[in-house]
């Protein structure tokens, strides 16, 4: 097992929403505490271009998946692809921003990795080398501290609760080696209305 942390990033025409950078920054902070590295997995259109910028937020490496099958978000495709990439690196954690897509994706990845999952975390810390997540439950009437029994934990991070770090450096970026094989969709998108450009 590595001590690496995978941070998921969704790209649209090379643009990345700020909340994804929170995931990379928090992934890097967590990886540093665990003695590993943060690997950003960037999926979507213009992923390669976006991947090169992830070093600025602490990613030691970035893996880009940019092909038609991932240009629009599809949970089935993203779930299988991200789980496959993560499994190959045997990380301690996979972190995602709990955006609409992130909340859809995270449990799929957790199921495929046989990982404990904490959704919509408002805090993450290391306690004696173990990951502990904080998350609201009961409609915010209580806060739970969650610990993990599985070797890998999947964490979705509540947007705007984690800092975006700016550091010097560039992630060593490469396309996903078997990238063209991104898993085929099992449901097909037949249209999309009114999706705004990413912020």
């Amino acid at each position: 097992m590595s001590n690496d942390v995978i941070a998921f990033v969704q790209a649209r025409q090379g643009e990345v929403k700020r909340t994804n950078l929170e995931a990379v920054s928090e992934g890097a902070r967590l990886a540093a505490g665990l003695g590993g590295r943060c690997v950003a997995v960037v999926m979507g259109s213009g992923a390669a271009e976006a991947a090169r910028r992830m070093g600025r937020h602490g990613a030691a490496r970035a893996i880009a998946v940019d092909e038609p099958a991932v240009h629009d978000y599809n949970g089935d495709v993203y779930g299988r692809t991200l789980a496959e990439i993560a499994r190959a690196r045997d990380p301690r954690a996979v972190v995602l921003s709990a955006t609409a897509a992130g909340k859809d994706l995270a449990p799929r990845v957790a199921a495929r990795l046989q990982a404990g999952y904490a959704a919509d975390c408002t805090g993450v810390e290391l306690r004696e080398g173990r990951i502990v997540a904080r998350r609201p439950v009961y409609a915010g009437k209580a806060i739970a501290e969650v610990g993990f029994e599985s070797p890998v934990a999947v964490l979705s991070l509540r947007p705007n609760n984690f800092e975006v770090r700016e550091v010097e450096g560039e992630a060593r970026s490469r396309p996903h080696p078997r990238s063209p094989r991104a898993c085929a969709p099992t449901s097909s998108s037949s249209g999309r209305a009114g999706a705004p450009p990413p912020i």
Binding site: Y73, T99, R192, P196
Partner: peptide
């Protein structure tokens, strides 16, 4: 979805 809806 964020800012729209998808048909599948």
């Amino acid at each position: 979805v964020e800012g729209g809806h998808e048909v599948l």
